[in-house]
Amino acid sequence: MALSPVKRRVLNIVLFLLIGLIVLAFALAIAVSLQPNEFQVTRSMKMDAPPEVVFPHVNQFAAWKAWSPYEKLDPNMTTTLEGPTAGQGAVMRWAGNGNAGAGSTTIVQSEPNESIQIDLQMTAPMDCHNDVVFTFRPEGKSTVVTWSMSGKVDLMAKFFHLIIDIDKMCGDQFTEGLASLKEISEKQASATTS
């Protein structure tokens, strides 16, 4: 039984669309698989304050409210602090809206006025585990603060990275946070030298 010309044309269009979808899915799968298995975002800023002034603002999670860009994502976000008030072993847990998400940060190493290593565990909006490092490099009477985050990239995150430029998104937030940290630290340094 032969198909009518109209049915044949419809069948050809459906077949063409189906092949197109398969090719598109295959191309997307290749693009996702070619994404790196790890990522790193790093931003630095020079602050006219010595390391001993800047360092405590990062080493104490209670001080993050004043400068962290993530504190601004949800004004109703709840945070709890555990362990020591500063340095190694200090923990901050948070839960907020879809922008802020939920998770915890733990200071795993703290070298006074030099570096702070933080374990970041996100539980929402997605599960991820990243390493965060702050370094404080003296430069004359100033400090160059570098904020870095790195981690592994699973299949879902690779797809996410195709759509969202993670370096720009997180990097812009890091720059905003560093600018606030700079303002606070420079005001404090200026007040102590006046």
Rank of each mutant, 00 (worst) to 15 (best):
L3A: 12
V6F: 08
K7P: 10
R9Q: 12
V10K: 07
N12R: 14
I13Q: 08
V14E: 04
L15M: 09
L18H: 02
L21F: 14
L24E: 02
L24Y: 05
A27H: 03
L28M: 13
A29E: 06
A29D: 05
A31N: 05
Q35L: 08
P36Y: 01
F39M: 02
R43A: 00
M45N: 12
M45E: 11
M47I: 01
D48G: 02
D48W: 00
P50R: 10
P50K: 14
P51N: 13
E52Y: 07
E52K: 09
H57Y: 07
H57N: 14
N59Q: 14
N59L: 10
N59C: 12
F61N: 02
F61W: 07
A62D: 14
W64K: 05
W64S: 02
K65A: 07
W67R: 08
P69I: 00
P69E: 01
E71R: 06
K72H: 08
D74E: 10
D74V: 09
D74R: 09
D74L: 10
P75D: 11
P75Q: 14
M77I: 06
T79K: 14
T79H: 13
L81K: 05
L81N: 08
E82D: 08
G87Q: 01
M92V: 12
M92K: 15
W94T: 00
A95W: 12
A95K: 14
A95F: 11
A95Q: 10
G96I: 01
N97P: 04
N99F: 09
N99V: 07
N99C: 02
G103T: 10
G103N: 09
G103C: 10
S104P: 09
T106V: 11
T106D: 10
I107Y: 15
I107R: 12
Q109I: 05
S110M: 01
S110K: 00
P112W: 00
N113K: 08
N113W: 01
E114W: 00
E114Y: 01
S115A: 11
I116R: 02
Q117M: 13
D119Q: 07
L120M: 15
L120D: 12
L120T: 13
L120C: 09
Q121Y: 15
Q121A: 13
Q121C: 11
M122F: 14
M122N: 10
A124H: 15
P125D: 07
M126D: 11
C128S: 15
C128H: 14
D131I: 12
V132P: 05
V132R: 02
V133R: 08
P138L: 08
G140E: 03
G140R: 04
T143Y: 00
T143E: 01
V144N: 08
V144K: 06
V144W: 03
V145E: 03
V145H: 02
T146Y: 00
S150I: 05
G151N: 12
D154E: 04
D154N: 06
L155V: 11
M156D: 05
M156I: 07
A157N: 03
A157E: 03
H161R: 15
I163Y: 06
I164N: 04
D165R: 05
I166K: 00
I166C: 00
K168N: 12
C170S: 10
C170D: 13
D172K: 03
F174H: 10
F174C: 07
T175A: 14
S180E: 04
I184R: 15
E186K: 04
K187S: 09
K187I: 07
Q188N: 09
A191M: 06
